[in-house]
Amino acid sequence: MITGTLDGVHAAVAVRGVDKTYRPRRGDASTTGASPVKANDGINLDVVAGEVFGLLGPNGAGKSTLVRQLVGLQRPDRGTIQVFGHDVVAEPAGAPCLLAYLAQDELAVRELSVQLAVATTARLRGLSRRGAARAAADVIDELGLAAIADRPLARLSGGQRRLACVATALVGERPLLVVDEPTTGLDPVARRGVWAAIARRRDAYGATVLLVTHNVLEAETVLDRVAVLDRGRVIACDSPGRLKAVVSEDVRLELVWRDVAPPADPVVHRLAPRALVDGRRWSIRLPQDDARDTLAALLGSPAFAALDDFTLSTPTLEDVYLALGGRNDDLERV
């Protein structure tokens, strides 16, 4: 079994043998007749103090379930979770004293102004009224939200709203930040701003960060280590660089067809079984020599006329995910 545990390190988070199964609720029409879903299946992980650790996986991989258990919102069916040595399964009320959590939904603060949402969260984290106002102003400045600080979140764009929610998670120092898809909907500038803010907290007071993402680029750019989840299991856990070494002999060939791929073409016919198809876009992982030959053959074949674009790139964590047996293909690449 793949585990993300480490020997001889100071673990900020230690997850051992965590299982969680969702069973259909009696009387709930939406789940009647449904089978139990195993969201987490024997998960073992260590997150080292001071690192930016990622949970990467497609929707439904069990990332959010694991995180909700870690922050004390759900109990696992089996297993233990320790945060800085505190057992958050036995005493879930202790978790909020150790960590800040950015959830996916912001309805609780949607009608507050950005300033009030951040300051209220700071006060609920125990800061005095004056301290909360000061901390809120600092985070708002840091994330470039000052111009919209007086506007209710409900009247902001999706990206601005998400950024304001990130501000609520960052306000008030917590040694562990658990952020569930913090950059969803953000433009590249705001995304880099969030990553920089997270890095500053690590540098300033050694904050540990657990970042949930299904964005491959984010995982490769900001994470020290990443656990790749698929259907509730950890299928790999290491630094992004070392994980990519698993498939370092391969390259990814992306083909974008003008309309549909010509099925009769012999090169296309040979590639089709290995291609991940997303509309007009084909993505094929190939050994480097094979990719070179395939591209040369394509350029010289009639199929070239049907091509709109093609790219050849080094492998990504998505390739690792697929090489390790991941079956979903909805990881984000931008």
Binding site: Y101, D105, A108, L124
Partner: peptide, 17 residues
Amino acid sequence: GALRAARALDYYAALPI
């Protein structure tokens, strides 16, 4: 009802209150 349906109560439950 809306907070519960959207799981937005997590916001409060993850705070030490």
